[in-house]
């Protein structure tokens, strides 16, 4: 029987963010916004969901006088992403 795909990752924007974050060490909010071509509001909401699930960590600081949000994938997030990709493989095989 096919495993259910993680609903938290099975969304275009959240999956996009996670795919970007596995490729880099950390990423600034503006970079993620640019790469996913999303709005700040929507991205912010989706990042919070990923953060609440413990898939990413969000660090808020300042770059000069401007606020800076930096995101990083967590071990839990990495594991969830791997499982999601493995489930996808099963779906595609069938």
């Amino acid at each position: 029987m096919l495993k259910e795909l993680d609903p938290l990752l099975h969304s275009q924007l959240r999956l996009g963010v996670m795919s970007l974050l596995i490729s880099v060490d950390s990423a600034e909010f503006t970079w993620l916004k640019e790469k996913t071509n999303s709005t700040a509001g929507n991205l912010s909401v989706q990042l919070d969901k990923l953060s609440e699930a413990g898939y990413i960590s969000i660090e808020k600081s300042f770059k000069g006088k401007k606020p800076l949000t930096t995101c990083r994938i967590s071990k839990k997030g990495l594991k969830a992403f791997e499982e999601y990709v493995n489930s996808l493989k099963d779906y595609i095989k069938t």
Binding site: Q12, L15, G16, K35, N37, T39, Y84, V85, L88, I92
Partner: peptide, 20 residues
């Protein structure tokens, strides 16, 4: 990349992953 679609087929998911 459009951001409003919440339901993805496995192929679309793979597309998102590879493009990102």
């Amino acid at each position: 990349m459009s951001i409003d679609k919440e339901t993805l087929t496995p192929e679309q998911s793979l597309d998102v992953i590879t493009s990102m």
